[in-house]
């Protein structure tokens, strides 16, 4: 199997979303192919960096934004009365 066929499998390998036969296949290839090993390491690092970056950016809902939602809901409740 050519390297390009392994790329999506490597992505699924990172997610532990492969059956044992596929895991064996990927691991065997990674041991033999330095380029795919680099691809695996850098893809894994890309996912990890993105995940940590966005999770650290998590922010509270500003008070005025939240109040606007509740205000709009109250308007709907009032309309429903009629």
């Amino acid at each position: 199997m050519k390297c390009e066929k392994y790329l999506e499998l490597i992505s699924l390998y990172i997610d532990r979303d492969l059956d044992q036969d596929e895991v064996d296949l990927v691991e065997e290839h990674l041991c033999l192919c330095e380029n795919c090993m680099i691809f695996f390491r850098t893809l894994k690092k890309t996912v990890a960096l993105s995940r940590v970056y966005y999770r650290k950016k998590y922010c509270r809902v500003p008070k005025n934004v939240s109040e606007r939602v509740f205000y709009q809901l109250r308007v709907i409740y009032e309309k429903e009365k009629f």
């Binding site: 390297c3 380029n35 680099i38 691809f39 850098t42 894994k44």
Partner: peptide, 12 residues
């Protein structure tokens, strides 16, 4: 595919 095979290992 060329790009994969020329990309640096920047993971560390």
């Amino acid at each position: 595919l060329e790009f994969y095979h020329n990309a640096p290992d920047w993971s560390n």
